[in-house]
């Protein structure tokens, strides 16, 4: 792998680290498999593209986060107020977003920003080729710090408790529907930002850019957990980012080993399936060994 390819992998990895971070909030903390993410990623891309073309790339990042909050809010209302199952609620919002993303970009499926200033062209090249990497890393570090601090506030603690023991949250006189909503909005805001950064990085807002994002995010999250464990929030957050970078490096290595780009989703799916089922498979194998040992005696 060339240095340029490695740097690119780390840059994209950092951006997708935000998706893994969002899944840390929704999947790991709230214990909700939120499939809105695929739609929200593209929504972030579409929103930021519209703003960037209008000459406001930085505003576009915040707008993408706002759009993400709205998407998360819709999913949250569907499951808390209207009692739609959580996975289905995410699928419904994601499906609606396919159309909405195209509407946002003015009835087109992609919106190029090649001729416009983006976050990355606005900032002068203070560190040569590494400028872009440093800018992305700074944004991601900021989001991580905010996330860790949020989980230390009373509201953040309540969000964590909601995924851990919902009954106990209502027993503490906190509405679990409210904490679920806060968690989903926060997670989708982060995903929206990831989509926006990705779009500005690629210089195009693409309505299909979100497809498969959930699986990539999950794979990254799990790689991070395998490496750093799940003991604390700080480890979880850092693990998500590190996992995403490693995932991207694996993908880059796969690409340079001439696995075709269209097969990458298959590779991602296999990584996730193996990583999630690993404890169950190990248990089966151990049991098999124990039985064998017992027979020999």
């Amino acid at each position: 792998m060339t240095m340029i390819a490695l740097r690119g992998a780390i840059e994209i990895g950092l951006i997708y680290g935000l998706v893994a971070l969002a899944l840390y909030i929704s999947y790991r903390t709230l214990d909700i498999a939120d499939l809105t993410v695929d739609g929200t990623f593209a929504l972030g891309a579409a929103t930021t593209a519209v703003c960037t073309v209008a000459g406001h790339p930085v505003l576009g990042l915040f707008a993408a986060m706002g759009a993400g909050v709205l998407a998360g809010f819709v999913t949250a209302i569907l499951q808390t107020k209207l009692k739609v199952q959580s996975i289905l609620a995410g699928i419904i919002t994601m499906t609606a977003l396919y159309s909405i993303n195209i509407i946002v970009m003015g009835n087109r499926s992609n919106l190029p920003m090649a001729k416009n200033d983006t976050l990355f062209t606005l900032i002068p090249e203070f560190a040569g080729d590494y400028t872009r990497l440093i800018v992305i890393a700074a944004v991601i570090a900021l989001v991580c710090v905010i996330t860790v601090l949020f989980f230390r506030t009373p509201l953040g603690l309540s969000v964590r408790a909601t995924g851990d023991n919902r009954d106990m949250v209502s027993a503490s006189s906190i509405n679990p529907a409210f904490t679920t909503t806060v968690g989903l909005c926060a997670a989708n805001a982060v995903v929206g930002l990831a989509g926006a950064l990705f779009a500005q990085y690629q210089k195009v807002g693409d309505s299909t850019s979100g497809t498969g994002t959930v699986v990539i995010g999950l794979a990254s999250l799990i790689i991070g957990e395998v490496l750093l464990g799940r003991r604390s929030v700080v480890r979880g957050v850092i693990g998500a980012i590190v996992g995403a970078i490693i995932y991207r490096i694996i993908i880059a290595a796969a690409l340079s080993a001439s696995i075709s780009a269209s097969n990458l989703k298959l590779v991602s799916a296999i990584i996730v399936a193996v990583a999630i089922s690993y404890p169950a498979i190990k248990e089966q194998l151990d049991l098999h060994k124990m039985r064998k040992a017992a027979k020999v005696k």
């Binding site: 009373p154 603690l157 309540s158 964590r160 408790a161 851990d164 023991n165 009954d167 106990m168 949250v169 027993a171 503490s172 006189s173 906190i174």
Partner: peptide
């Protein structure tokens, strides 16, 4: 039923104290 297992003792108490 009354406690969150993945949170520390003081975090649990802190939640209860939020009332």
């Amino acid at each position: 039923k009354g406690t969150a297992p993945n949170m520390t003792i003081e975090e649990n108490l802190s939640l209860a104290y939020m009332r």
